[in-house]
Design a protein around this nucleic acid. Structure first.
Lengths: 238, 238
DNA sequence: TAGTTTATATGATATTTGTCATTCATTTTT
DNA sequence: AAAAATGAATGACAAATATCATATAAACTA
């Protein structure tokens, strides 16, 4: 990993802070953390951490996109979520006092700060509102996972893919009149990892969605043309 | 719900406390909680809470078994986990400051204490070790859910059913020489809800497992005869 | 730029799983 | 105890999805 102190924006000036769990830290506390952090890894393909290894701190994403995934026994990747600006990574392993339960890889060039365990935990334990905020995030995450599990067992691949496309459009969509261009390069294999299916199934369904005028394909890029139609198909009334 | 103060064992004398998250509360704190709790619902079939409703406190299971589940849009239940003696229910909704993300139903006659929100939270926020302990439990839960999600998308129904049977044998198994009798009445539909599949699929696979001498069926009861065989089949090297 | 590798796309096919229908067994109700 | 309702078991079938094979396109490398 490349560490670069000179590019190290202090947390107190960090633009992504207001989106993050740090948003209700006092100036002093932010500075304490800032003094100990390091700006690290930024290239696509770089691994932040591997499942099974010991967490030494947390990662705070300043820009870029990180995929958080588990490798199943059949070798396929299940993508648990995509993390972006303002998101924290690795605090659940730290607070659970266990090794990482998943791996994290940068999929879009990123600026990421690493905050060592000690300064993160001491700030946490000395600041009840911050601790509450983190706990709230953990609790919320459980609800999200319960939902994902239920969808995985009770919905079809078509429904799940449609839903993934809606979410991608919501997070990474660039407005263009009627349609939204998903501004994130994902391989078909990665999309399959998000849905939890085989790559070929994703390719086939994307072709079908295109034929049905729900989306357009431009190389790896996907343009969502009819979000409402996808929503109907996904059986999520969201 | 039936509330019965006379049967209200104080927490400080509760046998299930040592298994629970309360195990490192001080005597005084346990007593504070104890003074405010109520022993409630005990019959099979009773609902502790419904998804979407507002949590008013947490449940602490003294005895019995509770299924925690979500109802999917197709009407089927996805069982998230079975809770038993010493387990807490509903604290993630409380700490996440949101409505229940799942429902809970007693499936084996139970003694359950209800601790109101206020006394639980005030104890929590005034006792960092306890707060840490809860946070650790939440964090661990996330890892468990990640594993379940990955299994749901990457493993076959046969593998998942085999694994569920192993887990049930581990939790509720009564030793009988080579075999373990699962001492918990679950309908085929509920087992299907645990696995995340159709009831008929469970019935069919159980018949298959029986034919292959992995299990025996005695009415609703299941006897695990060859746990190692199930483990091989489940593709979990656990 | 040509050659090589990798990703995408599509077809053919097998397998898995779900759905519907029916029978049989077990509980529950009257 | 008889009748009714519910749950379990099984067969027949349909649908969804995975796998394997191959073709094409795109990306990378020498």
């Amino acid at each position: 990993m490349s560490t670069n102190h000179s590019l190290n924006t202090p947390c107190e000036l960090c633009a992504s802070r207001k989106f993050s769990l740090f948003s209700d830290l006092s100036e002093t506390q932010v500075c304490t953390i800032s003094d100990h952090k390091n700006l690290i890894s930024h290239r696509k393909g770089q691994i932040l951490y591997y499942e099974g290894t010991k967490p030494l701190g947390i990662f705070c994403i300043n820009s870029g996109v990180v995929k958080v995934y588990k490798t199943a026994s059949n070798g396929k990747e299940q993508i648990l979520h995509l993390a972006q600006k303002g998101d924290f990574l690795g605090y659940s392993a730290l607070l659970g006092e266990e090794n990482y339960t998943n791996s994290a890889m940068i999929i879009e060039d990123a600026k990421i700060c690493f905050i060592p365990k000690e300064s993160f935990l001491s700030t946490l334990f000395n600041n009840t509102p911050f601790f509450k905020r983190i706990t709230k995030a953990l609790s919320h995450e459980i609800g999200v996972m319960e939902e994902k599990l239920t969808d995985a067992t009770q919905k079809s691949i078509r429904e799940r893919l449609a839903y993934v496309l809606i979410q991608l459009a919501n997070c990474y969509g660039i407005e263009g009149g009627e349609s939204q261009r998903i501004d994130l390069i994902l391989s078909r294999e990665e999309i399959a990892g998000m849905v939890g299916t085989a790559t070929e199934s994703v390719i086939r369904l994307l072709s079908e969605f295109k034929k049905d005028n729900l989306i357009d394909l431009d190389g790896k890029r996907i343009i969502v043309k009819d979000k409402r139609g996808l929503a109907r198909l996904s059986d999520f009334y969201a």
